[in-house]
Amino acid sequence: MKKSVFSLAATAALTGAFATSVSAEEYTVDKGDTLWGISNDKNVTVDQLKKWNNLNSNLIVPNQKLTVTGNSESTVETSKTYTVKSGDTLYGISQKYNITVDQLMAWNNLSSTLIHPGDQFAVKAQAASAPAPEKAEAPAPAPEPAQEEAPAPEPEKKEAPEAEPVNTTTEAEQSSEQSSSNDVVKEFTAEATAYTANCTGCSGVTATGIDLNANPNQKVIAVDPDVIPLGSKVYVEGYGVAIAGDTGGAIDGNRIDVYMPNRQDALNFGRQEVTVKVLSE
């Protein structure tokens, strides 16, 4: 980056400040005016306007009187050059001297807004006529590290088709369900308990003559014959297709007792409500 700078002699001759008399000027705010617009029109800064008018915010109203120049006998900065300090920017320097960034760049032959501490810039138009030897260019900034390419996106995984639900219904239940839509004579909800043939005083033979000890895998239920005729084929929810082949003193109305060969299974069954379907022969 090339910049026109000034020799020490020229700098000494051009840099300085002096006191001068400045006549205060007032401005009446119009509708739509802003401090920023007024500052640009009057070649002052917003901070100066706020300071001269004791403003705590940027809010102004129509017909408000604003002082747009400094007080009389104020000190006016007339420096012709400026030495860059750490943290300076072209914008900040331009605001300090009430000029534009474009003017700074034009007066100093700048092709970039990059500046360095120690650089000297002309901040008045007439000061740009004193050229000096070119200053050594600052070392080029280190190259930015190469950006790693983003990994290629993984191919979209197709969702596996949902597995069909496994049918855990027993063959007897399936056969009863298949026929239930056409062959159900009666359907109701019953209170169910379970019993076993292996008990004290039990013969193991049902009221219809089925020997449960000889046929432990036979599905038999005890029923109230007034509700379910003895010998009927019955589907019991959670038990399967059974024969209404037994009765019991406590089996009355919508009550059934399901036979189980294992005593512990009968105890585990407990008491529950089940759907009962009486099937045709």
Rank of each mutant, 00 (worst) to 15 (best):
residue 2 K to L: 14
residue 3 K to N: 11
residue 6 F to S: 09
residue 8 L to H: 13
residue 8 L to C: 07
residue 9 A to I: 14
residue 10 A to T: 14
residue 12 A to S: 14
residue 12 A to V: 11
residue 13 A to I: 06
residue 13 A to H: 10
residue 13 A to N: 08
residue 14 L to N: 06
residue 16 G to Y: 04
residue 17 A to I: 14
residue 18 F to L: 13
residue 18 F to G: 12
residue 22 V to N: 02
residue 26 E to R: 12
residue 26 E to Y: 12
residue 28 T to V: 14
residue 28 T to Y: 06
residue 30 D to I: 09
residue 36 W to R: 11
residue 39 S to A: 15
residue 40 N to L: 15
residue 42 K to F: 15
residue 43 N to G: 13
residue 45 T to R: 06
residue 45 T to G: 07
residue 47 D to S: 15
residue 50 K to Y: 04
residue 53 N to H: 06
residue 55 L to D: 01
residue 57 S to V: 09
residue 58 N to M: 11
residue 60 I to Y: 02
residue 60 I to P: 02
residue 60 I to G: 00
residue 67 T to R: 15
residue 69 T to F: 08
residue 69 T to E: 02
residue 73 E to I: 08
residue 73 E to D: 11
residue 74 S to Q: 07
residue 75 T to C: 02
residue 77 E to F: 10
residue 79 S to T: 10
residue 80 K to W: 15
residue 80 K to C: 14
residue 81 T to K: 00
residue 91 Y to V: 13
residue 92 G to P: 07
residue 100 T to K: 00
residue 103 Q to F: 03
residue 107 W to G: 01
residue 107 W to P: 01
residue 109 N to L: 15
residue 113 T to W: 02
residue 116 H to K: 13
residue 117 P to Y: 05
residue 118 G to T: 03
residue 121 F to H: 04
residue 121 F to S: 03
residue 122 A to R: 00
residue 123 V to L: 00
residue 126 Q to K: 12
residue 126 Q to T: 13
residue 127 A to K: 02
residue 128 A to T: 05
residue 130 A to C: 08
residue 130 A to M: 12
residue 130 A to W: 15
residue 132 A to D: 06
residue 132 A to M: 02
residue 132 A to F: 07
residue 135 K to A: 15
residue 139 P to C: 01
residue 140 A to G: 03
residue 144 E to Y: 07
residue 145 P to F: 00
residue 146 A to N: 04
residue 147 Q to H: 08
residue 151 P to F: 01
residue 153 P to S: 05
residue 155 P to T: 09
residue 157 K to Y: 12
residue 159 E to N: 04
residue 159 E to P: 07
residue 160 A to Q: 10
residue 161 P to C: 04
residue 162 E to Q: 14
residue 164 E to N: 05
residue 167 N to T: 08
residue 168 T to A: 13
residue 168 T to N: 14
residue 169 T to C: 07
residue 170 T to G: 05
residue 173 E to Q: 13
residue 178 Q to C: 09
residue 179 S to W: 15
residue 181 S to H: 09
residue 185 V to H: 07
residue 189 T to P: 00
residue 189 T to K: 08
residue 190 A to V: 12
residue 190 A to T: 03
residue 194 A to S: 10
residue 194 A to P: 08
residue 197 A to E: 03
residue 198 N to T: 10
residue 199 C to M: 13
residue 200 T to Y: 11
residue 202 C to A: 03
residue 202 C to T: 04
residue 205 V to R: 05
residue 206 T to K: 03
residue 209 G to F: 07
residue 213 N to G: 11
residue 215 N to I: 07
residue 217 N to Q: 09
residue 217 N to P: 04
residue 219 K to D: 00
residue 222 A to G: 05
residue 223 V to P: 02
residue 223 V to S: 04
residue 223 V to G: 05
residue 225 P to H: 08
residue 226 D to N: 14
residue 227 V to S: 02
residue 227 V to D: 03
residue 228 I to D: 04
residue 228 I to P: 01
residue 230 L to H: 06
residue 233 K to V: 13
residue 233 K to E: 13
residue 237 E to Y: 08
residue 237 E to R: 01
residue 241 V to R: 15
residue 248 G to F: 08
residue 255 R to Q: 07
residue 258 V to Y: 06
residue 259 Y to H: 03
residue 259 Y to T: 06
residue 260 M to L: 13
residue 261 P to F: 14
residue 263 R to S: 14
residue 263 R to K: 15
residue 266 A to H: 10
residue 266 A to Q: 08
residue 268 N to P: 02
residue 269 F to M: 04
residue 270 G to C: 06
residue 270 G to W: 11
residue 271 R to E: 05
residue 275 T to M: 11
residue 275 T to A: 06
residue 281 E to T: 08
residue 281 E to C: 02
